[in-house]
């Protein structure tokens, strides 16, 4: 009776995937320099011998996390991989592919370092399978977490570091991708009429306007055709500064509308000019919203037909003004 897929997969646990493979070059100062400069490492012990001596070291040391770099296969082998006749790693990947686990994403890398590397060390590494999880449902698709252990040694066989390396080998959501992409749900439409059209049109131009009675200069919001103070039907608008304070808010959890991310912070803000406005807070965690906090305007182009003013915490500069 032939083994099931599960059995064949589990037979890899404990097996070596990559045989001890020596680095192309020994640990050397020019490569350390590339690393230190590229990553902007400030610690002088990597290049300055005197600094290294001052810390009790005999020589400069390679950055610890650089250990992976020493054993990378390099450019030539990447562009012209050599098909090894007996390559356990390739065999393992083939088995994963057979199960449909054709995609990979790295999830964890845990290093343990035993000693620092100095120029002249010649690193080699091997890799073994530690565990393979049962199939799990993940956001990316159904997959298995494969944990391997890489062991880094010097020429004498002394262990320099170990690395637990966890990847998710998953079945890409082919069916979902094949379907035509569902359009993003749109925010509920504004009901535009002769009275409120100007406000939403201005918003499309990223102008937050406030209706003003031209007879008595009183500002009003929400908009309306007549001034409740002097009964005038004549009005124009003023442009708001965009500075506001948080007057009240709610953190919406349920029910959920597909156009929004929840928890959703919905707020009433008081504009510097004195009128209030219902809006959303952006970039402010629900627990950080505090009544009275200073806010500033930001524009949300929600979709082709809808632009809305939203508010974020006022920048420090805004607060000084």
């Amino acid at each position: 009776m032939s083994a099931t897929y599960e059995e064949r997969l589990n037979a890899w646990v404990g097996k070596q995937l990559v045989r001890p493979t020596p680095a192309a070059d020994p640990v050397n100062v020019p490569m350390i320099r590339h690393w230190v400069e590229a990553l902007d490492v400030a610690n002088p012990v990597h290049l300055d011998v005197e600094a290294a001596h001052a810390t009790g070291r005999g020589d400069v040391v390679a950055p610890a996390s650089m250990i992976q770099a020493w054993i990378m296969r390099g450019y030539a082998k990447t562009v012209r991989p050599q098909a090894g006749a007996d390559d356990p790693y390739a065999e393992f990947i083939a088995l994963l592919n057979e199960g449909g686990y054709t995609s990979v994403v790295a999830t964890d890398s845990d290093f343990e370092f035993m000693r620092e590397l100095v120029p002249g060390d010649h690193v080699s590494a091997d890799e073994s399978v530690e565990s393979i999880s049962p199939e799990k449902t993940t956001g990316l698709g159904a997959g298995r977490f494969v944990t391997t252990v890489k062991t880094y040694r010097d020429a004498s066989g002394e262990v320099l570091a170990t690395q637990k390396w966890r990847t998710l080998r998953f079945k890409p959501k082919a069916a979902a991708q094949a379907e035509p992409e569902k359009p993003q749900a749109l925010r509920p439409r504004a009901a535009i009429n002769l009275d409120n059209q100007f406000w939403f049109e201005a918003a499309k131009e990223h102008r937050l306007v406030i209706q003003r009675c031209t007879a008595c200069q009183t500002l009003r919001h929400p908009v309306g055709p007549q001034c409740p103070h002097c009964q005038s039907f004549d009005w124009d608008t003023v442009e708001a500064s965009g500075r506001a304070t948080l007057y009240s808010f709610t953190v919406a959890h349920h029910p959920r509308h597909p156009a929004f991310d929840y928890p959703l912070v919905i707020a009433v803000v008081e504009l510097e000019e004195g009128t209030r406005l219902i809006t959303n807070l952006v970039g402010i965690a629900p627990e950080d919203a505090v009544i009275g906090m200073p806010l500033e305007l930001e524009w949300l182009d929600a979709d082709a037909d809808l632009t809305l003013p939203v508010f974020r915490a006022a920048s420090a500069a805004g607060e000084e003004n």
Binding site: R189, A190, N193, T250, A252, P255, L306
Partner: peptide, 18 residues
């Protein structure tokens, strides 16, 4: 486009609807 419905324009586009 009636006034009652238009009043919701200040709320529902921001998710304030219940």
């Amino acid at each position: 486009t009636n006034a009652d419905r238009a009043a919701y324009s200040w709320m529902t586009p921001f998710g304030l609807s219940t």
